[in-house]
Design a protein around this nucleic acid. Structure first.
Length: 272
DNA sequence: AACAATTCCAACCGCGTCCAT
DNA sequence: CATGGACGCGGTTGGAATTGT
């Protein structure tokens, strides 16, 4: 079946969003909520397609977005999650409250990928690049395959069990009568884990990120305190005061010409 | 200072999936 | 069951910002 375009595109604006457009979209959503993205631009008085509005809201305007660079802990977690979930950015981003799939994806493509390559790891397979050619020579692996429990413990990702089993079909873990049978991918992950421990990836990354993240953490709103949360813990929105959020938006949006939203945003503070 | 190269990220595009009819 | 519309996802791109020469 031929798929219709999401909008006729005729007379619709494209490219970077202006402050006015941001104001209109934010104002509309905060006052009316989202029922149908297709209708949002019409009702909000925007010459954009619904898809574009959705993207802008999700990736930039959403009040619960966490801004600023990724911490080294987050980067480590992304690497771990990617090794299990692959390029399923939305699934990975779901483990980082306030982060978008686009953000995670961009960070992966621009930074983490390079780091892994520098470490001699294939960003796709998380396997040492040299070993690729020796793929068929299983005798090259000298270490004993780690047990499922040992691996989880070592990687510190026990909380991700459900993802690993439900969402990564290639890494099927078959549990039969308390026996865990790992497929080939398990070995790749084990190799990766071994290499990381050998190379002391953590401390190396510490050095790297300490220098690289400092530059952008200063300019934008950072909920760094909440970034210390372990995966799965979401920062309590109620703890992020409205004023904090508004302050954070100030450098981005000109609030002078914006309708007072304090009453409109009340629901944010009282969210369950 | 001027230009080139590189990096980074917001935004777009097209496809898959879900759901209502 | 088939069809069509809307949303969500992942890949890609354009261009601004930054860095190097």
């Amino acid at each position: 079946m031929g798929r219709q375009p999401c909008c006729d595109k005729i007379g619709l604006k494209r490219g970077p969003w202006t402050i006015e457009e941001d104001h209109k979209l934010m104002n509309f959503i905060l006052n009316n909520g989202i029922h149908c993205w297709r209708m949002v631009p019409k009702l909000a008085g925007l010459l954009r397609c619904g898809k574009s509005c959705r993207l802008r809201w999700i990736n930039y305007l959403r009040p619960d977005l966490k801004r600023g660079g990724f911490t080294e802990t987050e980067e480590d977690q992304i690497i771990q999650l990617h090794s299990r979930l692959g390029n399923r950015w939305s699934k990975i981003a779901a483990h980082f409250p306030g982060r978008t799939d686009n953000e995670v994806k961009n960070h992966w493509n621009t930074r983490i990928k390079k780091r892994l390559k520098l470490l001699g790891l294939d960003p796709v397979t998380h396997k040492p690049i040299e070993q690729k050619e020796q793929n068929n020579d299983r005798s090259m692996t000298t270490h004993q395959p780690m047990s499922a429990e040992g691996y989880e413990e070592n990687m510190g990702i026990k909380s991700l069990e459900s993802d690993a089993t439900e969402e990564m079909p290639k890494t099927e873990i078959k549990i039969e009568e308390n026996k865990v049978i790992w497929d080939d991918t398990t070995e790749l992950i084990n190799n990766y884990e071994l290499l990381c421990s050998n190379l002391d990836l953590g401390s190396w990354m510490n050095q790297e990120t300490n220098t690289s993240t400092s530059s952008y953490s200063s300019s934008s709103f950072s909920l760094d305190d909440s970034s210390h949360l372990s995966m799965g813990e979401s920062p309590n929105l109620q703890e992020i005061s409205l004023q904090q959020w508004i302050d954070s938006m100030d450098p981005i949006l000109s609030w002078d010409s914006f309708n007072p939203l304090e009453q409109d945003l009340f629901f944010l503070e009282n969210r369950p």
